[in-house]
Simulated scan of single mutants.
Amino acid sequence: MAPKADYSELKKSIDTLIEEVATIKEQQKTIMSLVVQLDQMRADNLEKDKKIAILENRVADIEQYTRINDVIITGLSIKPRSYARAVAPANGGEPAELDVISMERQVAVFMQSKDIQLDCNSIEACHLLPRRGTNDKPSVVLRFVNRKHKIALLKQGRKLKGTNVYMNDHLTKRNADIARKARQMRREKKILQTWTANCKVFIKLNGTPENAKVLLIRNIEDLNEYDV
């Protein structure tokens, strides 16, 4: 009778093992299903991230395009508004209007002193930007009627050498951060050159004149590859 008892115990052990194996297989199926779902979720999120990046780039491009006719002038001493009101004709327009006209005149007078041609009739708007620090001179934004007047002014920027006054494209914060990092990389000789054109940031990689690539940089992350 002992062999039959041993056989019965063995059969029970085998049946238990079979059940455990079946349970493990079901668990494996569940795990594999979850892995597939996770992979799909990752793929979906990656696709969403790409779409978000595209939309963010479009918004950034639109924001930058609204400044396409702007020139930002930094380092120029501008008299305060009280001065503008004091020198304005007594029978002139509203004070705010007089402030703007006076600001344009101050910019024009400075440019003329540096033999820079500036047609005030081509200016659509002129205003100050908030100062970053208490000791910083305000930045002036000139918005031109069309881009050719803006380009004509920027081409004369070399005449400001040694004045600590600079004229540049009016970049968005995003593009300004890119340009700032690119200039730092140029100083560190990680790239050969950088510049802006039509509110876009370009870099020229190190190498021979024939082989050095010129790249348009749209995101600050694009610079990381060369920031080594």
Rank of each mutant, 00 (worst) to 15 (best):
P3N: 10
K4C: 02
A5H: 06
D6C: 06
E9V: 08
L10I: 13
T16Y: 12
T16C: 10
L17V: 11
I18F: 12
E20L: 09
V21Y: 13
V21F: 12
T23Y: 09
I24K: 13
E26H: 11
Q27K: 15
Q27C: 08
Q28R: 11
I31S: 10
V35F: 07
V35W: 03
V36G: 04
Q37D: 14
D39P: 00
D39H: 07
Q40E: 14
M41H: 14
R42I: 09
A43M: 10
A43K: 14
D44N: 14
N45D: 07
A53D: 15
A53M: 13
I54F: 12
N57Q: 12
D61E: 15
Y65H: 11
T66N: 10
I68T: 06
I68E: 06
D70N: 15
D70C: 06
V71M: 03
S77V: 07
K79N: 07
K79Q: 11
V87S: 01
N91M: 08
N91R: 12
E94T: 14
E94V: 14
P95Q: 01
P95Y: 00
A96P: 02
D99I: 05
D99R: 04
Q106L: 02
A108E: 13
A108F: 08
V109P: 00
S113C: 02
C120K: 15
C120A: 13
N121D: 11
C126P: 06
L128R: 09
L129M: 09
P130I: 07
P130K: 10
R132F: 08
G133V: 07
N135S: 12
N135M: 08
D136E: 09
S139E: 13
V140G: 02
V141L: 03
V141F: 03
L142Y: 06
R143F: 03
R143H: 08
R147D: 04
R147T: 06
K150R: 10
I151D: 15
L154F: 04
K155V: 01
K155N: 08
Q156G: 02
L160V: 00
K161L: 07
T163M: 05
N164E: 09
V165C: 01
Y166N: 08
M167C: 05
D169L: 02
H170S: 03
L171T: 05
T172R: 04
K173S: 10
N175M: 06
D177Q: 10
I178G: 00
I178V: 04
K181D: 09
K181C: 09
M185R: 03
M185K: 03
R186L: 07
E188I: 00
K189W: 01
I191P: 00
L192T: 04
Q193S: 15
W195Q: 05
T196G: 10
K200V: 05
N206A: 04
N206I: 01
P209R: 06
E210N: 11
A212L: 03
V214G: 07
L215G: 06
L215I: 10
L216M: 08
L216N: 14
L216I: 07
L216A: 10
L223P: 01
N224A: 14
Y226P: 05
V228T: 14
